[in-house]
Computed example of a mutant assay.
Amino acid sequence: MTTLACIIRPSVPPARVVSLARAVEAAGIDEIWLWEDCFQTGGISAATAILAATEHVRVGLGVMPTPLRNVAPMAMEVATVEGMFPGRLIPGIGHGVQPWMAQVGARAASPLTLMREYATTLRALLAGERVTTSGRYVRLDDVALDWPPARAVPVPVAATGPKSLRLAGQVGDGVVLEGSVGLSGLPGALEHVAEGRAVAGREDEPFPVVQFVTGGTGPDVVERLRAELTTWGQDVSDDERLATHAIWGDAQQIADGVRRFAEAGADTVAVQPAADDPDLERLAGVLGEARELLGAG
């Protein structure tokens, strides 16, 4: 069954995050995904608060920028949260938005090199290995976690361009695709991922595909979604084009939209509300109804 997730955007005030997460869990949704955008809600802190306030919902971080954190404290944070809430954290990593990385003095000259070194080292540390490495960006001397996770923690990698997608296939435990990929771009993106997996000899390993999709419900939803996607540079001038980048309507319509993305290769469809969505709790409820329809189908 395809996983239907709900995204809590970092523009949601911190004081609302926990109550909204509880509403998402109460609706029966299995996963919540968070962004970590500069300079809004912190990913690890928000995820930990959500996990402490809920009982079973999984929380994905989509994604934490690798330039912002040394890989050793990143591993420490992930291992600590995993130890407190086993099996409920999905710690995704990515290049980060390059202008933001430059703004904080952390932009890497070669994001691909950084990702290769970082993902490889993070996975090793989380696996309980003792690591010594001297790369271009990642340098550790005899580092091992005192409290490594008791289970393997998958680390998905976010990617957009062909080189990043191939790298995600090589060094990630899954891929996170942002909304710009869309329904029409999903099969091609997964071809690049498959090329990377083949190079690394990882074709037989589990490799979940998480696709972010803008979505909503309510009487004015089409206008809201079209306005937002237009500001992101998407051509959504008619409903057919809008449907390649968005899911909207009642529970049945949203379930049908999720199925389209699943048929194109997505294992998890994470619905991200528009920035001006007037009722996030209502959206969570409709997503919960759609999940039931997906399970029945």
Results as ranks from 00 to 15, higher is better:
Asp204Glu: 08
Val199Ala: 14
Trp100Ala: 12
Ala200Met: 04
Leu225Tyr: 13
Pro187Ala: 00
Arg151Ile: 05
Gly216Lys: 07
Val171Cys: 04
Gly215Trp: 15
Leu190Arg: 07
Val97Leu: 05
Ser110Cys: 07
Asp142Glu: 11
Lys163Asp: 11
Gly135Phe: 01
Lys163Asn: 13
His95Phe: 06
Val222His: 09
Gly128Ala: 02
Ser110Ile: 02
Leu177Thr: 08
Val222Asn: 04
Arg166Phe: 04
Gly174Thr: 12
Leu145Gly: 06
Val210Pro: 01
Gly179Trp: 14
Leu112Ala: 13
Leu225Gln: 10
Arg136Ala: 12
Pro208Val: 00
Ala108Lys: 07
Ala127His: 02
Arg136Lys: 10
Pro154Phe: 09
Gly215Phe: 14
Thr214Cys: 13
Ala194Pro: 02
Ala124Asp: 14
Arg123Met: 03
Gly188Ala: 12
Gln170Gly: 03
Ile93Leu: 14
Asp173Cys: 07
Glu203Leu: 13
Arg224Asp: 09
Val143Lys: 01
Asp204Phe: 01
Val157Arg: 02
Pro162Thr: 02
Arg139Tyr: 00
Thr132Glu: 07
Leu183Pro: 05
Thr214Leu: 15
Val171Tyr: 05
Glu129Gln: 09
Leu186Gly: 13
Arg130Ile: 03
Gly94Lys: 03
Ala144Pro: 00
Ser180Glu: 08
Ser134His: 13
Ala194Leu: 08
Pro156Phe: 15
Leu177Tyr: 12
Ala106Gly: 04
